[in-house]
Design a protein around this nucleic acid. Structure first.
Length: 487
RNA sequence: GCCCCCGUUGUGUAGCGGCCUAGCACGCCUGCCUCUCACGCAGGUAGCGCCGGUUCGAAUCCGGUCGGGGGUACCA
């Protein structure tokens, strides 16, 4: 039997890192087993589903390069893959369930159910089965009152057990799992029906999803039995419940936490492989003594049985460290290529890039690529090289501390004089001249001497190596900036 | 309340009865390197929730307990 897994997000709001982690594990599972990764959009909630959210999810998946074999934009044998386009499918399943007595019509209101539960003193909440065996007269009476029924699934007696792929054997007594609603009174199908029906029809073999769905599993298992008997489902999939991704403290990472938004990591300059590698570590590990790996390695080694059931805290520091490790794995050319969109976005480079800027960028990147941990940091490091002279400005705090002081001014004057005579204008000659004038003649400590020059020339205390920066900047701009830093 | 899940340093994990005086990574702290930053290098810090039991021997098995989380919808 070939493996078929799916990810089925609801297009509501901005995609969460938990969604990425679930998508990644499903994808890795499918690829490891040479199976099929199905992508389905669960937009049954018309009120909350938005086009914007859907676009974000697609954008995210494309960025991460988690490709799907069936689903939006690629189609497949089980199309359509949008639940909003599958109404007839659900209507048909619902009708057959109702005819079969696996489901029954319920005329109760939520308030009536709650009131009865309260009165009975029952410890179990939820529906009490009141309408399970209504007589024709009772039904006629309810309809005469103008009531509209919903369909409920009749939970069997006894217990339901499954061998969870992540947690092992899990058992629920069905007395604690009330008969659940399959549709609204207006006939709209609910998640409880739609999700298992689609999984059945799309012949999903393994359902890997968040722990929050754990308690709805017994209901789905019971529904599957019915669907199989009705010929709608061929098999019951195996289930594996992935641990939560937690935020600070002991709370599930919620949409309100800025760290929850997956696309924000792209904006911050994360590499997709860095984010994915970090997320993989939340509940899984490739080896006892290693945590940086490629997607290919993950695919090769991934086994759902190795997934740890404990909830994991999202640690941005570690995420950045893993990302930094991946940055160091890339060549300078590759980093240049990947940083380009960010440099344009931040206004460091124009779009398209001029040939002169392109050349300067290629000369500068070797000094930058090895010292940045996120792609966005390239903008901070390189800005001074591409800014027009009239727009060049020094960081106020750095200027006050290193430039606008008696010592700073003296250093800059000496630096200007020394540099004015440098020939040819190369990093080596610049280094010699500056060291002679500032360190040897003035007797300054290198960090003090070069600090003032650095701020005057690059605008900040933090920059690529000074001598190389000056060389790239050119004599005119270099001297000009020293000149303007002198008051 | 009831049901279910989870419990190894601050964080993520390795561990599956002796190899554990508990390994790795991030973080943090010390140094080294050094024109800033970053990288790199050397070292340090800190943990098996608790109580019983099984066993010659338990982080590993069993029971209990405590703590945390989730569910309990005509949301997904």
């Amino acid at each position: 039997m070939t493996v078929r897994v799916r990810m089925a997000p609801s297009p509501t709001g901005s995609p969460h890192v938990g969604l990425v982690r679930t998508a990644l594990f499903n994808w890795a599972f499918a690829r490891h087993h040479g199976g099929t990764f199905v992508f389905r959009i669960e937009d049954t909630d018309k009120e909350r589903s938005t086009q914007e959210s859907y676009d974000s999810i697609i954008d995210l998946m494309r960025w991460l390069a988690l490709d799907w074999d069936e689903g939006p934009e690629v189609g497949g044998p089980h199309a359509p893959y949008f639940q909003s386009e599958r109404s007839e499918v659900y209507a048909d399943a619902l009708a057959r369930l109702r005819e079969s007595r696996f489901a029954y019509d319920c005329y109760c209101t939520t308030d009536e159910v709650a009131a009865r539960r309260l009165e009975s003193g029952s410890k179990v909440m939820g529906y009490d089965g009141f309408c399970r065996d209504l007589t024709d007269d009772q039904v006629a009476a309810f309809i005469a009152e103008g009531r509209r029924p919903i369909a409920r699934f009749r939970m069997p007696d006894g217990s339901i057990t499954w061998d969870d792929l992540v947690r092992g054997e899990v058992t629920f007594e069905t007395q604690y799992v009330p008969d659940f609603a399959l549709c609204r009174a207006n006939g709209d199908p609910l998640y409880t029906l739609v999700n298992p029906v689609d999984d059945a029809l799309m012949e999903i073999t393994h359902v890997l999803r968040g722990e929050d769905l754990l308690s709805s599993t017994p209901r789905q298992l019971a529904l599957y039995e019915a669907l199989k008997e009705l010929g709608i489902a061929k098999l019951t999939p195996e289930f594996g419940h992935l641990p939560y991704v937690m935020g600070e403290g002991n709370k599930k990472l919620s949409k309100r936490d800025p760290e929850a938004h997956a696309l924000a990591y792209r904006d911050q300059g994360f590499l997709p492989e860095g984010l994915l590698n970090y997320l993989a570590l939340l509940g899984w590990s490739i080896a006892a003594d290693r945590d940086v790996f490629s997607l290919e390695e993950m695919v090769e080694k991934f086994d759902i049985k190795d997934v740890n059931p404990n909830p994991a805290r999202f640690d941005i520091k570690k995420a950045e460290a893993i990302n930094a490790s991946h940055m160091r794995l890339l060549s300078t050319d590759e980093i240049t290529h990947r940083a380009l969109p960010y440099l344009k976005r931040d206004g460091v480079l124009t779009d398209p890039v001029s040939p002169a800027d392109q050349q300067l960028l290629e000369l500068a990147m070797p000094f930058v690529a090895e010292r940045i941990n996120k792609l966005t940091e390239a903008s901070r490091m390189l800005g001074f090289l591409f800014v027009a002279e009239q727009d060049f400005a020094l960081d106020e705090a750095d200027r006050a501390k290193l430039v606008d002081t008696d010592e700073g001014q003296a250093v800059l004057r000496a630096a200007y004089d020394a540099l004015a005579r440098v020939e040819p204008w190369s990093a080596a000659r610049i280094s010699d001249a500056l060291t002679a004038a500032l360190v040897e003649e003035m007797g300054l400590k290198p960090r003090v001497a070069f600090g003032a020059v650095r701020v005057a020339v690059t605008g900040k205390r933090i920059s690529p190596p000074l001598f190389e920066s000056l060389e790239l900047l050119g004599r005119d701009r270099g001297l000009g900036r020293l000149q303007s830093a002198l008051s």
